[in-house]
Simulated scan of single mutants.
Amino acid sequence: MDITVGHTPDSDDAFMFYGMFTGKVSSRDFTVTHVIEDIEKLNRKATNPELDVTAVSVHACAYIPGYTILRSGGSFGIGYGPIVTAKKQMSIDEIKKCKIAIPGKMTSAFLLLQLMIGKFDYVEMNFSDIPEAVKKGKVDAGLVIHETQLSYEQEGNVKILDVGEWWDKETGGLPVPLGINVMKTSLGEDTIHKFDKYLQASIEYGLKNLDDALEYAMQYSRGKPRELIEKFVKMYVNKVTINMGDKGEESIRRVFEMAKQKNTCTRFQTKYSHQVIIL
């Protein structure tokens, strides 16, 4: 079966798909064409299902009822996650009055920050442009995702909020629900199960062949040193990535329960837009 698979130009996604896309892990069931896009572009593509399988933000589940959530391939922070950076330290009241650059309205980082501090003034931009916009004073602060969570000091900024740390304390240690992989529900449960196992095997292969998988992932390093990329990949390709388990499921449910309670997610529907997590 020929299928299209979307993932981001990020080192952790590349690491997960290394086995699959290089043919190190094969499948009799699928021939894969991969499509690489920024996460917010993938989120928007998924609202009018274009790709058979795609990485999306957990937040996007409120807008994409045509997909089923896979158990493998998720990006969950374990006590860490997105941060907010600025040129100087600020109080929480000052932050709430800031114009904050965000990496997209459908990103989980945006939803989580709203849950943390309430509504705020924001401007959307590509996540990779946010550190420079903060440094040059184009915005007051920036909501930072991906490897720039680790490189903000080298970029001349300071951390003023830790969204992942807040979630960890707020939920009693649930993993931070950031990114997941989804597959068109119309393809059927059997096909979805098979692909989920295929992706899981690819992730496990990468973890067992760490140096080779990291070398492959470095093509998406955006000029960052290997040590930083290795640290980032090890943060976001973890045991919950192989299979989200009960804790991963609970964290997804919890974020939408909180969004509903706070009326934050404007298109929230019961059971995150009728989506299900494949069993």
Rank of each mutant, 00 (worst) to 15 (best):
P177A: 09
G223T: 05
L174V: 12
P9V: 14
T8P: 03
K231E: 07
V25D: 06
G19F: 07
M244I: 15
L113N: 11
T171Y: 02
I92K: 15
T241G: 02
V158S: 04
V123H: 09
L42M: 07
I36N: 10
Y67C: 01
L115H: 05
M106C: 04
K260R: 14
E124L: 15
G223M: 04
R71Y: 11
D140A: 10
D190Q: 12
Y272P: 05
M258Q: 06
H59Q: 11
I160K: 09
T185E: 08
G77S: 00
A217T: 07
E227I: 10
P65D: 07
S72L: 08
Y216R: 03
G248Q: 01
V35C: 07
G179A: 09
S11H: 02
I36C: 11
N126P: 14
L113A: 06
E132K: 15
K231C: 00
K169C: 03
G248F: 04
F256N: 10
I102V: 15
D52M: 07
K136Y: 14
A133C: 09
S128C: 10
R44K: 12
L214C: 09
S273I: 06
G77C: 00
M106W: 12
E249R: 15
T148L: 09
R226H: 04
M90T: 07
S273F: 13
V276K: 15
S151N: 13
I83N: 03
V163D: 02
N263Y: 04
K208V: 05
M258W: 12
T107L: 08
D246M: 09
F268K: 00
G223L: 02
M90P: 02
M125H: 06
N157M: 14
L210R: 13
R267C: 09
I252S: 09
L115S: 09
K194Q: 11
M244S: 03
I39T: 09
E170I: 00
G79E: 01
I145L: 12
W166T: 08
D168G: 02
Q154R: 11
F195M: 04
Y216Q: 02
F232S: 02
F110W: 01
A46R: 01
Y205L: 04
E132V: 14
V134E: 02
L207F: 06
V276L: 10
D246R: 13
S57V: 00
H59Y: 14
H274E: 11
A14V: 02
A62I: 03
F30Y: 10
L51S: 05
I130L: 14
I36L: 13
R222C: 04
M125N: 05
V144S: 10
R44D: 03
I203V: 15
Q149C: 15
W167F: 15
I36F: 12
I95W: 02
S151Y: 11
V56N: 00
H34M: 06
L187C: 02
M116P: 05
I242C: 04
K197V: 09
K138Y: 12
S57I: 01
S27D: 07
E155W: 11
K224R: 12
R267V: 13
N209E: 06
N43V: 09
D190R: 13
V123P: 09
L207T: 07
K194S: 13
I192P: 00
